[in-house]
Design a protein around this nucleic acid. Structure first.
Length: 635
RNA sequence: GGACCCGUGGUGUAGCGGCCCAACAUGCCAGCCUGUCACGCUGGAGAUCGCCGGUUCGAAUCCGGUCGGGUCCGCCA
């Protein structure tokens, strides 16, 4: 009978008593969820994270307990001893797992009183201002929805650890006080007291450290790692967040992806057994395919509505554009594309709905948005139908894959713009029509990303994912510049066409994780870093440890990193990762509960050899002069 | 750095130029009630409408600024 939670304060939790326990003595402790005072009879719903159990206290049977119970209010912490009893016929509560029984309390002690809480702790449905939830996070977590999500997150992390240990991974912690890396996001800096004038940086990820662990022969490493990035916040971005970070030695892309996919499947089935995996094994799309068919590198595959290229349906037998509609023909002749999506069941869209779509398309960068409705009879209607002719219009909607009832939306523009606009419209319409089943888990791989994007401002190539990603073997000859000197990159370099051994995991349209097989040869890494604008001296200054390590025998290696917060949010059907973090920050980086960030003590600054040359008020303090919060070093 | 939205008793909302020193629900307090479970009934307290300034005879309501929160772009894997 005693559970793992049994203690001097309780024999059971508030979620476990059942009819079979009737007649047994029991003691429960918890928070008062609700009190119903019937006069001579007081009912208390006692709550802990395991559930709710009804306690009944009878004035004639237990006068002292009744007296104490009459003083009890919501959120008081109490302990009640008594006997478990089956409820009277007809008074069972089917909505509670414990609803067949009640604890007939004979002794009640108030362990702690509670002020009236600032919001309804006992109402899981209540809409509460997020400021209040964050300020009183300990009360918010007491509520069922947050408690459930944090439990789910714990189960997720547990399952991840299990899967990795089983597969021979070693969990290794890497430091949080490391060296600033100029790559990627802005670093959080931590001034050093022992060495005034110098700073540590908090890791944006353990990337270099895990590669060094591979050189160290660890072979298979993983970590549930806290990462820090000093960038502006979003619903899916916090300044500190948690990654599943892993790296493997003596692997190619397939080996990493195979393990990761099996790990994801195992974790998903164990943590979310009731959520079906849409496709197993996971679909694999190249970056180029994903952009072509979905207009994004993280397509939501829970619904179709793919982007279709209409060129073939618009050209005549001579291969020249001949649709009859100038906008299409001219754009095709100029090397552009004409692409479409078919919105199911939207043929009857009102003028207003269509105007809104056109408006969206223009806002997203398209010159315009043409549309054709395929009526139930098969007749094609729309403002551009008269240019295309009956035949042309039907050929076009057939090519678009439209069936009766569909609305075909067409963009004529460059491939880049057309894909992007239609991709976003696809998402907007899919959301509006509820095409995505929110119960399904649709994982997919996106592979073969371009190695680099041209950074016009800094005249260099910029790694699309991570500066250490390896190039596909067949593209290795492309890692050269037009000038022949890797230290003089230009936008015309063949390197712009090189593809990386890079793979992303996408879940329901969210980028869950990304990784690559790394460059593991010093000469190749130096070449790639040169293309990325680093001089020989600079790369040694910034990545010296890794480059040096490669001189001592680096194995081929690769890995991946996952956003644990996003994974937990998707499992919880939440669109905001704050909902799966115990103590998140606001969009302006404030912790409303602890009131951080705050002003340091002058002595602390002095010890660090720092002084503020301008400041804004802290959360608690008054607004300052608004000058930038720059720091001057006194060392 | 920019755009947009929100801010009214403890909580969630209504009111959007005079009918409002503000309404409704819930919560809170007191009393009554021995089978309730969102218990019920009776009574009561509680907000000068985020803050500052302006327009107006008159501002919760209109305008400007500011603070706080959110969504998005830039930024960021």
């Amino acid at each position: 009978m005693p559970t793992q939670f049994a203690s001097p304060y309780r024999t059971h939790t508030c979620g476990e008593l059942r009819a079979t326990d009737a007649g047994k003595p029991a003691q429960l402790s918890g928070w008062v969820n609700r009190r119903r005072d019937q006069g001579g009879l007081i009912f208390l719903d006692l709550r802990d994270r395991h559930g709710i159990t009804q306690v009944v206290i009878d004035r004639t049977d237990a006068p002292a307990a009744h007296e104490a119970a009459s003083k009890v209010r919501g959120e008081f912490v109490v302990t009640v001893a008594g006997q478990v009893a089956k409820r009277l016929e007809g008074t069972e509560n089917k909505r509670l797992p414990t609803g067949e029984v009640e604890l007939q309390g004979t002794d009640l002690t108030i362990l702690n009183e509670a002020k009236t809480p600032p919001f309804y702790v006992n109402d899981p449905e209540a809409q509460i201002d997020e400021t209040l939830r964050l300020k009183y996070r300990y009360l918010d977590i007491r509520r069922e929805p947050m408690a459930r999500r944090l439990l789910l997150r714990s189960q997720l992390v547990h399952a991840i650890r299990d899967a990795h240990h089983k597969a021979g991974f070693i969990e290794i912690e890497t430091p949080n006080l490391i060296k600033a890396t100029p790559e990627g996001a802005r670093d959080f800096l931590v001034p050093s007291r022992l060495q005034p004038g110098n700073v540590y940086a908090l890791p944006q990820s353990p990337q270099q450290l895990k590669q060094l662990l591979m050189v160290a022969g660890v072979d298979r490493y993983f970590q549930i790692a806290r990462c820090f990035r000093d960038e502006d916040l979003r619903g899916d971005r916090q300044p500190e967040f948690t990654q599943l970070d892993l790296e493997m030695s003596f692997v190619d892309e397939a080996a990493v992806m195979d393990f990761v996919e099996s790990m994801i499947i195992e974790v998903s089935r164990s943590v979310m057994p009731e959520r079906p995996l849409q496709t197993v094994p996971f679909p694999r799309l190249t970056y180029a395919e994903a952009m072509d068919r979905y207009g994004t590198d993280k397509p939501d595959l829970r619904f179709g509505m793919e982007i279709v290229n209409l060129a073939a349906a618009l050209t005549g037998p001579d291969g020249k554009p001949a649709s009859g509609f100038r906008v299409f023909d001219d754009n095709l002749a100029a090397g552009g594309v004409v692409k479409s999506i078919a919105a199911p069941g939207m043929a009857g869209a009102t003028r207003r709905e269509i105007d809104e779509l056109v408006e969206s398309a223009k806002r997203l960068g398209a010159g315009g948005l043409a549309h054709l409705a395929v009526e139930e009879t098969g007749t094609v209607k729309g403002p551009i139908a008269k240019f295309l002719g009956d035949d042309g219009a039907e050929r076009l909607t057939a090519a678009a894959g439209a069936t009766p009832g569909d609305l075909v939306l067409i963009v004529a523009d460059t491939a880049k713009v057309a894909n992007e606009v239609l991709g976003k419209l696809r998402l907007e319409i899919g959301t509006k029509l509820g095409l995505a089943d929110d119960n399904v888990l649709a994982y997919e791989w996106i592979t073969r990303f371009p190695m680099y994007e041209w950074d016009a401002e800094n005249e260099r190539w910029h790694a699309t994912h991570n500066p250490f990603s390896g190039v596909l073997p067949e593209d290795e000859p492309l890692l050269v510049t037009a000038s022949g000197d890797p230290y003089r990159p230009s936008p015309k370099d063949p390197a712009g066409k090189a593809r990386a051994m890079q793979y992303d995991v996408v879940l329901n349209g969210w980028e869950l994780g990304g990784g690559s097989v790394r460059i593991w040869r010093r000469d190749l890494l130096e070449k790639s870093l040169a293309l990325q604008g680093h001089s020989a001296e600079a790369m040694h200054e910034k990545f010296g440890a890794l480059l040096d390590a490669f001189d001592y025998g680096a194995p081929p290696h690769g890995g991946i990193a996952f956003g644990i917060d996003r994974w937990a949010a998707l499992f919880s059907k939440q669109s905001n990762i704050r909902e799966v973090m115990a103590f998140p920050k606001t969009q302006t980086g404030n912790d409303l509960m602890l009131e951080a960030p705050s002003e340091p003590e002058p002595e602390q600054l002095a010890e660090l050899g720092l002084k503020f040359v301008g400041r804004r008020g802290s959360v608690a303090g008054p607004a300052g002069d608004g000058a930038a919060g720059t720091v001057e070093n006194l060392a």
